[in-house]
Design a binder for these strands. Structure first.
Lengths: 241, 241
DNA sequence: GGGCCGTGTGGCACTCAGTGCACGGGCATC
DNA sequence: GATGCCCGTGCACTGAGTGCCACACGGCCC
């Protein structure tokens, strides 16, 4: 029952006690109405110890993001060349979803807090920003050399984060009922179909082969037609999106 | 010459004096090494007056974003049905660029500050977030009723902001030399070509007319070819991108 | 002119987040 | 048992932000 026999990433019970005490007070009297002294009094520890575990009062609301960010960084670092870049960052975003889905009630409580308290919202933004920069950094490396590589990397990273958050928030608004996975998959598919450029064509292309005339599309367009319309017609001609 | 005759948004000179004093100190000894007492001492005003004009120490670094946000909100509110939505939010983003471009040296100084100081970075994120929510709110209204309308709205807004910031930051890194407009236009074109689906086709399309065979492009593609490659070929065939 | 406002400003005291530092107690090692 | 170390604690301090009151200035009515 003791946690003292787990050398790697042993969870200090004190940390968890602080988080529990903090959330109890935050929920019953609000974040700003709760002082750090209140928290440590309820947890039965010294005030100084709070700041040993959490650099700031806001950090106690997001106790697991630091490790999740490290997990995402590792996941992106171990990415191989054969991974399609956009697909890879979508999978990385799913790591964050998994963390939220592991503790639905906790996630919903935190969501309600961050929605109400401006300071927590700002803090969450800086956390999300670090995720986004991790994704963008990975994409920049993968797109290196391509024209507008960094631009595309930044835009795709932002789109992936936005899609992920859109689905995540809608799940959180529903009190964490149901499976958030399918909604996030759908949202990320949306982004992937808009941006996904398989890079596998440099190695083993695996491009599906045309097998007959019915697999060929001929598009006739005016040169000065708006590109969006051409793409729109092209999409419907190809039977997509 | 007096400002007493301008009831709406009359600029108190005290506000400007505080901003000037603050930046002088921030630049010469750093943001965190400068206290609010230092600022008010240099500006020759009382400490209490500082917090009359700026709700927090961070606000003095972004003295014009509040009005710019109001400007953007008004710009989006006056948007007509005939405006293509994605195009409209791109134009709204250009309002922010214009604000930065109006004071290049100030913008560059602020950029250096926000890059170094984590607290300012977090504050800037919350400002950018409000811009993004304004854009997303507009798009949600325009996409209302469409399947995945809110998802598309959030993703497009995030992409527009990311593209804008990508170009803006590269301009800021170059010490504000040159014209940021073309880079931002290019970045936003990138987003528009990925997402732009004009709705004008319900009204008067105004499609340009082809005038001869040299204005016609014929593209032959396999039906199962990756869309991105087809678009790429299409772009070069049309002489764009 | 002498009161009566509303507004802008300064001063003061206070709360609270966050930090530096030094102390004390367990705990392993030699 | 002495040494060093890690962890938790108490204390004093800085600095941001707030509430409250006093004061000065200008107009306005009586």
């Amino acid at each position: 029952m003791s946690t003292s026999s787990a050398p790697p990433s042993a969870k200090p019970p004190m940390r968890d006690a602080l988080v529990a005490a903090a959330f109890r007070l935050f929920l019953e009297r609000g974040y700003e109405q709760t002082t750090v002294d209140d928290i440590v009094a309820l947890a039965g520890v010294g005030r100084r110890s709070f700041f040993r575990y959490f650099p700031s009062k806001e950090d106690v609301v997001f106790p697991d993001h630091e490790s999740c960010l490290a997990e995402m960084t590792a996941f992106l670092a171990e990415g191989r060349e054969e991974h399609e870049p956009v697909r890879r960052v979508c999978d990385a975003a799913r790591l964050v979803l998994r963390m939220y889905a592991e503790n639905p009630t906790f996630s919903v409580q935190r969501y309600r807090l961050t929605k109400e308290v401006p300071g927590l919202r700002a803090y969450e933004l800086s956390v999300v920003w670090r995720y986004e920069r991790a994704l963008a950094g990975y994409l920049r490396r993968r797109f290196a050399g391509e024209p507008d590589g960094t631009l595309r990397a930044d835009v795709v990273a932002a789109a992936v984060v936005a899609a992920h958050n859109n689905a995540l928030r809608s799940w959180l608004r529903s009190d964490g009922r149901g499976d958030p996975g399918t909604a996030v998959d759908h949202a990320l598919d949306h982004v992937q179909s808009a941006f996904g450029r398989p890079r596998t064509d440099r190695g083993a292309p695996q491009l599906p082969r045309a097998e007959g005339p019915e697999d060929v599309v001929v598009l006739v367009s005016r040169r000065d037609a708006p590109l969006w319309r051409v793409v729109q017609q092209l999409e419907s001609a190809l039977g997509r999106g």
